[in-house]
Nucleic acid binder design. Structure first.
Length: 888
RNA sequence: GGGCGGGUAGCUCAGCUGGAAGAGCAUCGCCCUUACAAGGCGAGGGUCACAGGUUCGAGCCCUGUUCCGCCUACCA
């Protein structure tokens, strides 16, 4: 018999590479929209094209892949769309940095040449992350790969922009926005991160215009005083409300400032007087609009003081101006005091430089009407898992403000709006216009700004399916089945996709959203390059294999918000992969080339019946757990079944049958072994596609089994009700109890493992006697006994080690083997332990409240439990006394 | 300020509708038993953050306290 010898340890690398390529070349994961099967679709959260794969991606991809592979097994028509996003600011930064090394800026190249240059970069480097996605084993459809800035997606963006504009949901205007001095662009509110930083609160005197005294304001940014246009006090503040309507004089500038009343001002904070600087503070901007204040902008786009400030300060950065201004105030005796004050500072999420509120002309999406629909669709049409994230989703939508979508960069979807030089009107159109739509003048100039990258990302669930064209994909796969993403982009992304999907497809973009945790390092810190605590998924794959990494992430997936990953865990699961591999090796050594055609229901023997029953239970629980996104449970069920049941017990129990002469038993056992092994590979496949594929390729088959060698195309194993046999579990428990009980005696008494011993079992029932007799040879081999005697009247020597298993008395004669003191101590320990638990149960049963109120079956259970323990205790005590009688 | 999540074995965490506290890793014994030493067999280890409450019964439900983490926010 020739049989391919498997390597002694699992080597993931050749399997992984071979099958990645095979799946892609054979288009295994390219579905036919006209094909059979209910649709199941997922769009990938497109990673940043400049990015490298990090653990968060790895987790995200693994979970999606489990869902996709599992649903393929269920016969669904599965589409998983891959792609990347063009990450406007980040990508432009990358290429600008390159240019800088050449001593150039983008302005030296000009817009068109620069864009060309970015495309070159994208083609060369930008797809890096896609090859990394392949390494994870993601079963995406590579033929449908998308990019948020490719032609088809540009078409969708254009369509959406124009329609929203025509409906009045997109508008242009002068507003205060978050401005990044370094990136030189506006940012949306959620692109600003807040960091608590120590600062100072400066108390500054502002004289009253009528010379009747002064007010003291408190400010963290004294330099902005140059752009103050009012002082505000709370109208209910009796200290100051008589001043409302009067004027103060702005120090260093001399401008007169109206004193206004607004209940926004917090009486408790600072001095109760607020300087109002509409152009440089979001809140002041609102106050300014409300009270119709002047808006004076004193900083330019680099954060440098401009011509609206007194000449002395012009050309200084804001920070430099602050120093000078404080000195000047001090000199004039207007600086009352400076106290420490911690406050939140907004920083750019891309470059971490401090954000400057800045007034400029920008484009906005009016969010309220869109948000209303998006809110109403949850949970009726879209359910969020875990459910508690729903509240966070609502909170954001309820407090939403208009979305600033214009960015002052070049890499991105350029806003399709043209201003007429002649009449000044805007033309917004899907096709590039050649003339003004109002006056017909040919003299029109296109907007310079591009759109926020998230604008195109928001269309992803339908733009990737071909919208605005009428495609088969859209008809078949929209709405998508599930979105899998981290909570950090719930706002950025999920909510906006909901809005856009509802607005343009009149259906939610996904039926379910599964929000997973963020991966952190083993100390709970966010992984980041700067702190150097990054665990790189690629290096983990190199070291331990993709499956080990995937299994690790899956087993962690149920945790709250953080996954604290350590390399040690991955290593542990690599061991598990090796265990699976070696169980297969064992199988291969003991299976014939052609698996015998035996009816599983006719396979005899405790081990076979038990494992087949357990296999059915495992199948059911895998289906349940996957359907409820309980990924960690999937991992746990499989781990325990494979290691603790299949390997530890089943494989050991069938060895005699496999090595034996009884051909009927052997054939039946081979069939069961093969069944469990092969079906376990199918169950495991969504989590660990590579090793299961590797094993599937070499496993023999029964005659007539012409299933594909490509495990990814095979259905979920069929359920076999006829193999369910709960009685086998009960019998197995007895068997395992006896084996473990005797092993315990042996190790606890420090008896050499190889020492020949005898075993006597005094049984309590004919059933138990039958079970144990039937498996006597296994008790001998697994627990290493020479002679085993089983029966109701068995009399063991008084000098025996003893245990009680389900009422059956187990005795191991110790004469000449070991001193009896240690056995006595061991028995005492067990009796004490038993006593303790019995106490609890009998107290419970002694409580009339329990007996009267608890459900009868619970009470009954407790009674049986107590009786069993009582019996065990009696027997153990007798056995102990028996031993004591020979010790004198 | 508001919201959310968490405090269970030395470590990392499970524990779904309340019914004798679990896993992995680590630790301690013994074993190179012909699938696997990346292994096998066995053992030890927990006032489930604290205080109340509901209940016959609470890790789980309620209230309060405390500590940690995250998100969010217009105290200058």
């Amino acid at each position: 018999m020739t049989r391919k010898e498997l390597a002694k340890v699992y080597e993931p690398w050749d399997v992984e590479e071979k099958w990645e390529n095979h799946w892609e070349e054979n288009k295994t994961f390219t579905p036919d929209p006209d094909g059979p099967g209910e649709s199941y679709s997922i769009v990938i959260p497109p990673p940043n094209v400049t990015g490298v794969l990090h653990m968060g991606h790895a987790l995200n991809l693994t979970l999606q892949d489990i869902l996709c592979r599992f649903n393929r097994q269920q016969g669904k028509n599965v589409l998983w769309v891959p792609g990347t996003d063009h990450a406007g600011i980040a990508t432009q930064n990358v290429v600008e940095r390159q240019l800088k090394e050449e001593g150039l800026t983008r302005h030296d190249l000009g817009r068109d040449k620069f864009i060309e240059r970015v495309w070159d970069w994208k083609k060369e480097k930008g797809d890096h992350i896609l090859s990394q996605i392949r390494r994870i084993g993601a079963s995406v459809d590579w033929t449908r790969e998308c990019f948020t800035f490719d032609d088809q997606r540009a078409k969708a963006v254009r369509e959406v922009f124009v329609k929203l504009y025509e409906e009045g949901l997109i508008y242009k205007g002068d507003y205060i926005i978050n401005w990044c001095n370094r990136c030189h662009t506006a940012l949306a509110d959620d692109e600003v991160e807040h960091e608590a930083k120590p600062g100072k609160l400066h108390h500054v005197k502002y004289p009253l215009a009528d010379g009747s005294g002064h007010l003291i304001v408190a400010t963290t940014r004294p330099e902005t005083m140059l752009a103050d246009t009012a002082i505000a006090v709370n109208p209910e503040d009796d200290r100051f409300n008589h001043l409302i309507g009067k004027e103060a004089v702005l120090p260093l500038v001399g401008r007169k400032l109206p004193i206004i009343g607004d209940k926004y001002v917090d009486v408790e904070f600072g001095t109760g007087c607020l300087k109002v600087t509409p152009a440089h503070d979001m809140n002041d901007w609102e106050l300014g609009r409300k009270h119709d204040l002047d808006i004076i902008s004193m900083l330019d786009e680099d954060g440098v003081v401009n011509e609206n400030a007194p000449e002395k300060y012009r050309g200084m950065t804001a920070l430099a101006a602050r120093v000078v201004i404080l000195a000047d105030l001090e000199a004039e005796g207007l600086l009352e005091s400076i106290v420490d004050h911690d406050h939140n500072v907004g920083v750019c999420y891309r470059c971490k430089s401090v954000i400057e509120p800045h007034v400029s002309t920008q484009w906005f999406v009016s969010m309220k009407p869109l948000a209303k629909k998006a809110r109403a669709a949850v949970p009726s049409e879209t359910q969020i898992y875990p459910e508690h994230w729903t509240k966070t989703y609502y909170d954001w939508l309820d407090n939403i403000r208009d979305w600033c979508i214009s960015r002052q960069i070049w890499w991105g979807h350029r806003i399709p709006a043209w201003t007429c030089e002649k009449c000044g009107k805007l033309t917004v159109a899907i096709e590039d216009p050649s003339a003004c739509s109002s006056c017909g003048s040919k003299n029109i100039v296109r907007e310079e700004d591009v759109l926020d990258t998230w604008f195109s990302s928001a269309l992803w669930p339908f733009s990737t399916l071909g919208w605005p064209d009428d495609t088969k994909e859209l008809a078949k796969y929209y709405p998508t089945s599930c979105l899998v993403t981290g909570f950090d982009i719930l706002f950025f992304w999920v909510a906006r996709m909901m809005m856009m999907g509802l607005q343009f497809k009149e259906q939610v973009p996904f039926k379910e959203v599964y929000i997973h945790a963020l991966v952190r390092d083993e100390n709970g810190k966010k992984m980041s390059k700067s702190t150097g605590n990054v665990i790189d998924p690629l290096s983990m794959i190199d070291k331990y294999g993709a499956d080990a990494l995937r299994f690790t992430l899956t087993s962690f997936a149920a945790m709250g918000r953080d996954i604290k990953l350590s390399e040690q865990r991955i290593e542990g699961y690599k061991h598990f992969m090796n265990k699976i591999w070696n169980a297969t090796r064992f199988g291969m050594m003991n299976l014939p080339d052609e698996i015998p055609a035996v009816q599983l229901s006719e396979a005899d023997g405790l081990a076979n019946k038990w494992i087949l029953h357990r296999l059915e239970e495992v199948k059911k629980s895998i289906v349940e757990a996957t359907g409820e996104y309980r990924f960690n449970e999937i991992a746990q069920i499989l781990y325990r079944f494979i290691w603790s049941e299949f390997c530890d017990w089943y494989l050991e129990m069938i060895k005699p049958a496999l090595y034996g002469e009884d051909e009927t038993t052997k054939a039946a056992t081979q069939k069961v072994l093969w069944t469990v092994l092969s079906e376990t590979m199918l169950l495991l496949h969504p989590v660990t596609p590579f090793i299961t594929q590797g094993i599937w390729s070499v496993l023999p088959r029964p005659a007539g089994d012409d299933r594909s060698d490509d495990i990814a195309t095979l259905p979920f194993p069929e359920m076999r009700e006829e193999c369910l046999d709960p009685a086998a579990v009960a019998r197995m428990e007895l068997f395992m109890g006896v084996v473990s009980g005797t092993r315990n005696i042996r190790t606890e008494l420090l008896i050499e493992p190889a020492k020949k011993l005898d075993l006597l079992i005094k049984t309590v029932s004919d059933e138990d006697k039958a079970v144990l007799e039937e498996n006597m040879h296994l008790i001998k081999s697994l627990a290493r006994f020479e002679n085993v005697t089983i029966g109701p009247d068995v009399e063991a020597p008084k000098a025996s080690g003893a245990a009680v298993v389900q009422g059956n008395e187990i005795s191991v004669p110790l004469e000449g083997v070991v001193d009896f003191e240690s056995e006595l101590a061991r028995l005492d320990k067990n009796i004490t332990k038993l006593d303790k638990t019995m106490m609890g149960v009998s107290n419970k049963l002694g409580n009339p409240g329990f007996v009267n109120n608890a459900p009868p079956e619970v009470v009954e259970k407790e009674k049986t439990k107590l009786a069993d323990m009582d019996e065990e205790k009696t027997k153990l005590t007798q056995l102990k006394e028996r031993l004591e009688s020979v010790m004198g």
